[in-house]
Nucleic acid binder design. Structure first.
Length: 110
DNA sequence: TTGCTGACCGACG
DNA sequence: CCGTCGGCCAGCA
């Protein structure tokens, strides 16, 4: 299959496929796209999602430690945590409880 | 056009 | 355990 889409575009697709109440990591998406070391780019792409008209659940994407590193960029410091909490997740100290159980890996699910 | 930066991750000392 | 560095891709001055 030839995906001539840009790395960013692919990030949007994968992020949009994240099920409700699930979370994944930048590295997982990067790995799924074939660029393991491009985890940073994933975060950069998600930053562009704010500018995008599409409703991308970027709040479901966090770092591999289950830490909400990107909460600063959601307009509000608590915005990301509240969004996740609203989905049934539990945020404690900027980290997700039961992260392993709520973890959604595109490499496995897709 | 060149160079720096950014929501990360893994390796090394 | 903690600090530092390289790699990856795209946007911007």
């Amino acid at each position: 299959m030839k995906l001539e889409k840009s790395f960013f575009q692919q990030v949007y697709e994968v992020t949009a496929l994240i099920p409700y109440g699930r979370v994944t990591s930048y590295g997982a998406i990067a790995t799924y796209l074939g660029s393991k070391g491009s985890a940073r780019i994933v975060g950069w792409a998600l930053n562009s999602t704010k500018n995008s008209i599409k409703n991308i659940p970027a709040h479901r994407v966090i770092n591999k430690s289950g830490l909400l590193t990107g909460k600063h960029h959601f307009g509000g410091i608590n915005t990301m945590a509240e969004l996740l909490t609203n989905e049934g997740l539990i945020i404690k100290d900027n980290s997700i409880l039961n992260f392993e159980k709520k973890y959604w890996d595109p490499n496995i699910e897709l």
